[in-house]
């Protein structure tokens, strides 16, 4: 009785406390969403009046080779980035899961690139990747190997960016895998040892399946990250050579801010958002359904 009354008395406080967010939501989430639906059917350079063009932005998108190019580039990035990230993160996580002195130090160091600004990391890698003066080609030259055209070759540029992104982000995923590993019940391994399972079989049949939720998180986060790729190609390559590093976000930015096509940029963003949601849903389905091998 008393509780019910007190609850009712507090109703309005809850509303007041939430009000700022409601206003924020209306201004910066709901309004942009609604406005996006308006914008995608218009041509607009912000300055002259908006002009209704119906589905023309989408007709253009379907015929736009650069849209497909940016999708393909993102795919190239993901196909290299995700497996590499999982392999490297899992490897280091397994090593760091062994009770050793100085684990904390190594974990902290591997995590360092995560916190540093992407711009700084990109400048750093620009120097590592430089064809004539770069550190990496310097190392190759010292063991008498030919230089690699990291960023100046259209086939190498996106893989190079994927490697850089892996280096930057892998620290997060090492930590996630460590959390996942520590959540696996000891008893499972003990039972398996009693059954005489080898270390490899234990990994295959216990560790890896138990890490499945972590893998989903990593795949989804990396995918979203891959679709948001912007500053890396913007600074490193400007989208070249030959559009091989033109990412979706970079293309949206160029359409909006170089060419002043706000409507088309909004349509690109809209389609990209649908693609991201679709890809993530499929990934979740596929990984969850995958039988524990």
């Amino acid at each position: 009785m008393n509780l019910v009354r007190s609850r009712r008395r507090h109703d309005r406080t809850g509303v007041w406390l939430s009000l700022p967010y409601v206003i924020f939501f209306l201004a910066f989430v709901a309004y942009p969403l609604v406005f996006s639906f308006v914008l995608i059917f218009h041509r607009w350079n912000i300055i002259t009046p908006m002009e209704w063009v119906g589905l023309k932005n989408f007709e253009r998108l379907i015929a736009d080779p650069l849209f497909y190019r940016s999708l393909g580039n993102t795919l190239t990035f993901l196909v290299i980035h995700i497996p590499l990230q999982i392999a490297v993160a899992l490897g280091f996580a397994l090593l760091l899961n062994v009770p050793l002195r100085g684990r904390g130090f190594f974990r902290a160091l591997y995590f360092l690139p995560v916190v540093v600004s992407g711009v700084a990391v990109t400048i750093l890698w620009q120097q590592l990747y430089s064809y004539d003066y770069g550190v990496l080609n310097g190392i190759l030259a010292s063991v008498h190997l030919p230089p690699v055209p990291w960023l100046v070759n259209a086939r190498m540029a996106m893989p190079s960016i994927a490697i850089m992104a892996t280096w930057k982000n892998v620290g997060i995923y090492i930590v996630l895998f460590l959390v996942g590993l520590q959540n696996i019940p000891r008893e499972l391994y003990e039972a398996a040892s009693l059954d005489g399972a080898t270390a490899f079989r234990q990994f295959r049949h216990i560790t890896f399946p138990m890490l499945n939720p972590t893998v989903i998180v990593i795949v989804v986060l990396s995918t979203i990250g891959g679709f948001s790729l912007f500053i890396e190609p913007y600074v490193l390559t400007g989208g070249g050579p030959m559009q091989s590093t033109l990412s979706g976000m970079l293309y949206i930015y160029n359409q909006a801010f170089y060419f002043g096509h706000m409507g088309y940029a909004a349509a690109l963003g809209f389609v990209y958002a649908l693609v991201i949601l679709g890809v993530v849903l499929i990934q979740k389905k596929v990984i969850e359904r995958e039988p524990a091998t």
Partner: peptide, 12 residues
Amino acid sequence: KEIFDGFAQVYE
């Protein structure tokens, strides 16, 4: 600008 951007891509 956009037309010359197209030329820049072809030139490359």
